[in-house]
Amino acid sequence: MKNVLKLAIVALLVIGCKQKVVPADIAKLNGYWEIEKVDVADGEDKNYKVNENFDYFEIKNNQGFRKKVKPQLDGTFIVNDTYENVKVRFEKEAVFLDYSTDFAKWSEELVKLTDEELVVKNEENKKYHYKKTGAINITENGETTK
Protein backbone atom coordinates (compact mmCIF):
# COMPACT_ATOMS: atom_id res chain seq x y z
CA MET A 1 0.00 0.00 0.00
CA LYS A 2 2.86 2.38 0.81
CA ASN A 3 4.39 1.73 -2.63
CA VAL A 4 1.11 2.58 -4.34
CA LEU A 5 0.88 5.83 -2.39
CA LYS A 6 4.49 6.75 -3.25
CA LEU A 7 3.86 5.96 -6.92
CA ALA A 8 0.72 8.10 -6.93
CA ILE A 9 2.59 11.04 -5.41
CA VAL A 10 5.40 10.76 -7.98
CA ALA A 11 2.86 10.53 -10.81
CA LEU A 12 1.09 13.68 -9.59
CA LEU A 13 4.38 15.54 -9.37
CA VAL A 14 5.32 14.57 -12.91
CA ILE A 15 1.91 15.54 -14.28
CA GLY A 16 1.90 18.78 -12.28
CA CYS A 17 5.35 19.76 -13.54
CA LYS A 18 4.45 19.40 -17.21
CA GLN A 19 5.41 22.56 -19.04
CA LYS A 20 2.44 24.50 -20.35
CA VAL A 21 2.93 26.77 -23.36
CA VAL A 22 1.58 30.24 -22.64
CA PRO A 23 1.14 33.20 -25.03
CA ALA A 24 4.37 34.84 -23.83
CA ASP A 25 6.31 31.72 -24.94
CA ILE A 26 5.37 32.11 -28.62
CA ALA A 27 8.21 34.60 -29.22
CA LYS A 28 10.64 31.74 -28.50
CA LEU A 29 9.44 30.10 -31.71
CA ASN A 30 11.12 32.78 -33.85
CA GLY A 31 14.40 31.73 -35.44
CA TYR A 32 16.09 28.64 -36.82
CA TRP A 33 15.20 25.11 -35.70
CA GLU A 34 17.01 21.89 -36.59
CA ILE A 35 15.15 18.59 -36.35
CA GLU A 36 16.77 16.04 -34.01
CA LYS A 37 14.33 13.13 -34.04
CA VAL A 38 10.80 11.98 -34.77
CA ASP A 39 8.89 9.77 -32.32
CA VAL A 40 6.58 7.50 -34.28
CA ALA A 41 3.52 5.93 -32.65
CA ASP A 42 4.63 2.37 -33.52
CA GLY A 43 7.93 2.91 -31.70
CA GLU A 44 10.25 3.15 -34.72
CA ASP A 45 11.79 6.51 -33.90
CA LYS A 46 13.97 8.25 -36.45
CA ASN A 47 17.08 10.18 -35.36
CA TYR A 48 18.63 12.84 -37.57
CA LYS A 49 22.43 13.12 -37.41
CA VAL A 50 22.88 15.64 -40.24
CA ASN A 51 20.30 18.05 -41.63
CA GLU A 52 20.48 19.78 -44.96
CA ASN A 53 17.56 22.04 -44.08
CA PHE A 54 16.44 24.04 -41.06
CA ASP A 55 12.98 25.40 -40.31
CA TYR A 56 12.84 29.17 -39.91
CA PHE A 57 9.87 30.65 -38.04
CA GLU A 58 8.86 34.28 -37.92
CA ILE A 59 5.78 34.85 -35.76
CA LYS A 60 4.32 38.17 -34.58
CA ASN A 61 0.91 38.61 -32.93
CA ASN A 62 0.30 34.85 -33.30
CA GLN A 63 0.68 34.97 -37.10
CA GLY A 64 3.62 34.54 -39.42
CA PHE A 65 5.37 31.99 -41.58
CA ARG A 66 7.68 28.98 -41.65
CA LYS A 67 10.32 28.48 -44.35
CA LYS A 68 12.78 25.72 -45.10
CA VAL A 69 16.29 27.14 -45.35
CA LYS A 70 19.55 25.48 -46.32
CA PRO A 71 22.57 26.54 -44.23
CA GLN A 72 25.87 27.19 -45.99
CA LEU A 73 29.36 26.88 -44.51
CA ASP A 74 29.95 30.63 -44.76
CA GLY A 75 27.07 31.46 -42.41
CA THR A 76 24.53 32.31 -45.11
CA PHE A 77 21.35 30.47 -46.05
CA ILE A 78 19.88 29.43 -49.35
CA VAL A 79 16.24 30.48 -49.26
CA ASN A 80 13.53 30.07 -51.88
CA ASP A 81 10.11 31.69 -52.20
CA THR A 82 8.24 28.71 -50.71
CA TYR A 83 6.75 29.22 -47.26
CA GLU A 84 3.83 28.19 -45.10
CA ASN A 85 1.56 30.66 -43.37
CA VAL A 86 1.31 29.94 -39.64
CA LYS A 87 -1.31 30.95 -37.11
CA VAL A 88 -1.01 30.14 -33.43
CA ARG A 89 -4.26 28.91 -31.89
CA PHE A 90 -4.92 28.47 -28.16
CA GLU A 91 -7.67 25.94 -27.50
CA LYS A 92 -8.53 24.82 -23.97
CA GLU A 93 -5.27 23.48 -22.50
CA ALA A 94 -3.55 23.00 -25.88
CA VAL A 95 -1.72 25.23 -28.36
CA PHE A 96 -1.78 24.55 -32.10
CA LEU A 97 0.19 25.76 -35.09
CA ASP A 98 -2.21 26.02 -38.02
CA TYR A 99 -0.35 25.92 -41.36
CA SER A 100 -1.70 26.89 -44.76
CA THR A 101 -0.41 27.11 -48.30
CA ASP A 102 -2.21 27.54 -51.60
CA PHE A 103 -2.50 23.75 -51.74
CA ALA A 104 -3.13 22.46 -48.20
CA LYS A 105 -4.06 23.19 -44.59
CA TRP A 106 -2.96 21.23 -41.52
CA SER A 107 -2.29 21.63 -37.81
CA GLU A 108 0.32 20.52 -35.32
CA GLU A 109 0.00 20.62 -31.54
CA LEU A 110 2.73 22.61 -29.83
CA VAL A 111 3.77 20.15 -27.11
CA LYS A 112 6.87 21.90 -25.75
CA LEU A 113 8.57 25.23 -26.39
CA THR A 114 11.64 26.52 -24.56
CA ASP A 115 14.55 28.72 -25.60
CA GLU A 116 16.37 25.63 -26.88
CA GLU A 117 13.73 22.95 -27.57
CA LEU A 118 10.61 22.65 -29.72
CA VAL A 119 8.31 19.61 -29.85
CA VAL A 120 5.24 19.44 -32.10
CA LYS A 121 2.80 16.58 -32.67
CA ASN A 122 0.96 16.07 -35.94
CA GLU A 123 -2.39 14.44 -36.67
CA GLU A 124 -0.66 11.04 -37.15
CA ASN A 125 0.59 11.28 -33.53
CA LYS A 126 4.22 11.73 -34.66
CA LYS A 127 6.26 13.97 -32.39
CA TYR A 128 8.92 16.11 -34.04
CA HIS A 129 11.76 17.20 -31.74
CA TYR A 130 13.79 20.26 -32.75
CA LYS A 131 16.72 22.11 -31.24
CA LYS A 132 17.32 25.82 -31.65
CA THR A 133 20.18 26.51 -34.02
CA GLY A 134 21.69 29.29 -36.05
CA ALA A 135 24.00 29.94 -38.93
CA ILE A 136 26.96 27.64 -39.54
CA ASN A 137 30.14 29.58 -40.18
CA ILE A 138 33.44 27.79 -40.64
CA THR A 139 36.60 29.83 -41.03
CA GLU A 140 39.41 28.96 -43.46
CA ASN A 141 41.22 26.92 -40.81
CA GLY A 142 38.17 24.70 -40.26
CA GLU A 143 37.18 26.14 -36.87
CA THR A 144 33.56 27.02 -36.22
CA THR A 145 32.99 30.69 -35.51
CA LYS A 146 30.32 32.06 -33.21
Score class of each variant (00 low, 15 high):
F54G: 02
P23G: 01
F65S: 15
K18I: 00
A11V: 02
V21A: 04
K67S: 12
K67F: 02
K28G: 00
G43Y: 02
D25R: 13
K20F: 06
V14I: 14
N30E: 08
I26E: 04
E58W: 08
I15H: 01
E58D: 12
V10E: 08
G16C: 13
L12E: 05
Q63N: 13
I35N: 08
V22E: 14
L13K: 06
N51S: 12
K68Y: 06
D39G: 13
K67M: 14
A11M: 07
Q63H: 11
F54Y: 12
V10W: 07
Y48I: 15
A41N: 09
G43T: 03
K68G: 01
K28I: 00
I35R: 11
K37C: 08
I15R: 00
V40Q: 14
C17H: 09
C17R: 12
G43C: 03
K60Q: 07
N47P: 10
N47F: 05
Y56I: 01
V14Q: 00
K20M: 11
A27R: 01
E36W: 03
V38P: 02
K60S: 04
G31P: 05
K46R: 14
E34C: 09
F54S: 00
Y48K: 10
L13G: 11
D55K: 07
D45A: 15
Y32M: 12
I59N: 11
E34M: 09
G43F: 00
E36P: 04
E44S: 14
K67R: 03
Q19S: 08
Y32W: 10
C17S: 15
N53C: 07
G16V: 07
D55H: 12
E44P: 07
G31Q: 02
D25I: 03
L29T: 10
V14D: 00
K68T: 01
V21N: 01
E36T: 13
V40A: 04
N51H: 01
I15T: 07
L29D: 02
K67H: 09
E44T: 01
I35E: 15
D55C: 03
K60N: 07
P23M: 03
N47L: 05
E36D: 11
F65W: 01
E36S: 10
N53F: 13
K37N: 04
V50A: 09
G31H: 03
L12R: 04
K28H: 01
K49L: 11
G43Q: 06
D39K: 15
K28C: 00
Q19C: 01
I26R: 00
Y48P: 10
K68I: 03
N30T: 03
I35H: 02
Y32E: 11
E52K: 15
N53A: 15
E52T: 14
V22M: 13
C17L: 14
F57Q: 04
Q19W: 02
K68C: 08
K28P: 00
Y56N: 07
D45G: 14
K46A: 11
V21D: 06
A41E: 08
F65K: 13
D25H: 15
W33A: 01
D55G: 02
D42Q: 15
K46Y: 15
I59P: 06
A27G: 05
Y48T: 13
